[in-house]
């Protein structure tokens, strides 16, 4: 688990690293640390998996990927780890999660987010996932987003109002 200093660093960088020649130095000054501290802690958090990656976070919607489909699948629980890994490797899948079913109204246990520039492309991607799952696919659905009602995860002001850092669980227009 991250300690208090780690959390402060995460919080200070969730709005983005400063676009100045020495961004870690700038964060360090803000927190009363040294740039060395900030870099080594970021590196350690990455090794521990507290941070998944450090880099540019693209806004897919802005790049023409206006169709985001949340595809959901009902597959046997004993195959989900194996199949989830395979689906997660498809290059058009940005997130792939195992979530609990909520019977009777929600039979789906595998979630794969797909992004495309047209609905036709999404349909094609769904076909590819279905092919991969083969006979283990006991049912599926796709939920297109029709409206973004709130997406403030990356805004510093919102984040600090929420009082905690933002998870990127659904960073890609989920």
């Amino acid at each position: 688990m991250p300690d208090a200093t780690d959390r402060k660093i995460i919080e200070a960088t969730q709005g983005g690293l400063p676009l100045t020649p020495e961004p870690y130095q700038a964060i360090a000054e803000q927190l009363g640390l040294t740039a060395e501290d900030v870099m080594s802690r970021l590196s350690a958090m990455q090794d521990k998996g507290i941070i998944r990656r450090i880099g540019a976070v693209p806004n897919h919607y802005k790049l023409g990927y206006r169709f985001n489909g949340m595809t959901v699948w009902d597959i046997p629980d004993d195959t989900i780890d194996d199949l989830g890994q395979k689906v997660g490797q498809l290059d058009f899948v940005s997130h792939c999660y195992h979530r609990p079913r909520h019977l009777p109204e929600w039979p789906y246990n595998l979630f794969a987010m797909v992004h495309a520039k047209s609905r036709e492309d999404v349909d094609n991607q769904i076909r590819q996932i279905a092919e991969l799952l083969g006979g283990f696919n006991h049912g599926c659905d796709v939920l297109y987003s029709t409206r973004i009602l709130k997406k403030t995860g990356f805004r510093r002001s919102e984040k600090s109002r929420a009082g905690q850092p933002v998870s990127d669980e659904t960073a890609l227009n989920v």
């Binding site: 991250p2 959390r7 995460i10 960088t13 969730q14 709005g15 983005g16 690293l17 676009l19 970021l42 958090m45 990455q46 998996g49 507290i50 941070i51 998944r52 990656r53 450090i54 880099g55 540019a56 976070v57 693209p58 806004n59 802005k62 790049l63 979530r99 979630f111 990356f154 905690q164 850092p165 933002v166 998870s167 990127d168 669980e169 659904t170 960073a171 989920v174």
Partner: peptide
């Protein structure tokens, strides 16, 4: 131009706090 939302660390779910969909 909002093509990127930021440059920085990306945190996987449930590493900090508890979340749900």
């Amino acid at each position: 131009t909002d093509v990127i939302t930021r440059i920085g660390p990306v945190i996987p779910p449930n590493r900090i706090g508890v979340s749900t969909l």
